[in-house]
Write a protein that binds this DNA or RNA. Structure first.
Lengths: 145, 145
DNA sequence: ATATATTCAGAGTATTTAGTCTGATTATTA
DNA sequence: TAATAATCAGACTAAATACTCTGAATATAT
C-alpha cells in the first residue's frame, strides 16, 4: 500500500491510468482491467462505480459495455482522483498528528512539512493522467499483450 | 491521524516528547501522561512497554515508578521512533502503490517522489527529541499546569 | 424474443488496526 | 508486614478498511 493513499485510492489511480491509454469512446470491462492489473474484481467494480457517480467515468451495461473516461485524460489530475476517494484532510493536517498544531502554535516540524506538503500537492496536481500514462512504460499498462 | 504514521506511532512520539521535557532520572506515570496528552490509558501503556523493550525507555514498578527515557533526549530522533514502531518500508516504496515500480521502470512521479522522500527523511532525522521538545511551546507539553 | 455479457447494488465476510479489561507482579512506603 | 501505586501481560472487544458474494437490471447480438 502507498504511504499517502488508501488502497482504494491506489486501485482507482491504476484503473484510471489504464483507461487513459485507450481511445476515449472505447469501453473497458472490469474483467479486462483485472487481467492486466492485479486488483480484486468486485472491489474494483465498486470503485469504478463510485468514480462513475462522481463524474470521472462513464459506464455502459451489456456486451461490449464497460467503463471509460468521461472527460479527456488531459483534463484529469491525480489530485482530483485522490480528492474524490480519500479527501485531502490528511495531507493538510499536522504530520505528527498533534491535535492543536496551528499556524501560531505549532509542532517542531511544522515549517519543514509545509514545504513538503507543497511539493506533494504539486506532484499530484502538476501532471494530467494522459502525461502520466505516457510516462508509464510498464508492460502491465501497455495495450498490446 | 497523521498521513505518514499509524496512530500508535503518533502516540509514541507524543509520549516520548513529553518525557523529554522531564529530568531523565524522573519517572512519569501513565496516569500523568494521559492527563496531559489525550491518549487512551491502556493503549499508551502497551506502546510504552513496547518502547521499553526496544530500549528507548526504562520503567520502574511501584509507587513513584513509571517511564523515563533510557538515553538522553538529544540522542533520539523522530526517525528512530518511527522506524521502531511503523518501520520504514512504506516511506521507501512506490508512492502510487504500483507493485513493480523500480529504478529502471518506474511510475510517473517516481523522480518527484524521490526528492520528497529525501526531504521527509531529513525532516524526521534532522532534529533530536530534545530540540523538538524545546520547539514545542504548546501548553499541553509544558510541565507547569 | 432469447441468450449472453456486462454493470449495479447492497449485504455479507475477513483482516487489520485501535482500544479495553482484568488480574498478576513488583517495588515502595508506612 | 501490609497497604498501595505503579507496570506487565495477555486476552478480549470495537471500529475501520479491505474484499467477496449473489442476484438483479440492462443492453447487445443473433
Amino acid at each position: 500500500m502507498s504511504i499517502l493513499f488508501s488502497r482504494q485510492c491506489e486501485y482507482a489511480l491504476q484503473a484510471v491510468l489504464y483507461l487513459a491509454l485507450k481511445p476515449q469512446n472505447e469501453m473497458t470491462s472490469i474483467r479486462e482491467l483485472t487481467k492486466r492489473i492485479d486488483i480484486p474484481y468486485h472491489f474494483v467494480a465498486k470503485i469504478l462505480q463510485d468514480l462513475t457517480r462522481k463524474g470521472f467515468l462513464v459506464s455502459h451495461k451489456g456486451p461490449a459495455g464497460g467503463f471509460g473516461l468521461a472527460v479527456p485524460a488531459k483534463d484529469i489530475t491525480i489530485l482530483q482522483i485522490v480528492e474524490a476517494i480519500d479527501g485531502l484532510s490528511l495531507i493538510n493536517s499536522c504530520v505528527l498528528g498533534f491535535p492543536n498544531c496551528t499556524h501560531d502554535d505549532h509542532c517542531a516540524v511544522h515549517d519543514q512539512w509545509e514545504i513538503i506538503r507543497e511539493r506533494i500537492h504539486h506532484m499530484l496536481a502538476s501532471k494530467n493522467i494522459l502525461e502520466m500514462a505516457d510516462d508509464n512504460k510498464k508492460p502491465q499498462y501497455s495495450l498490446t499483450i
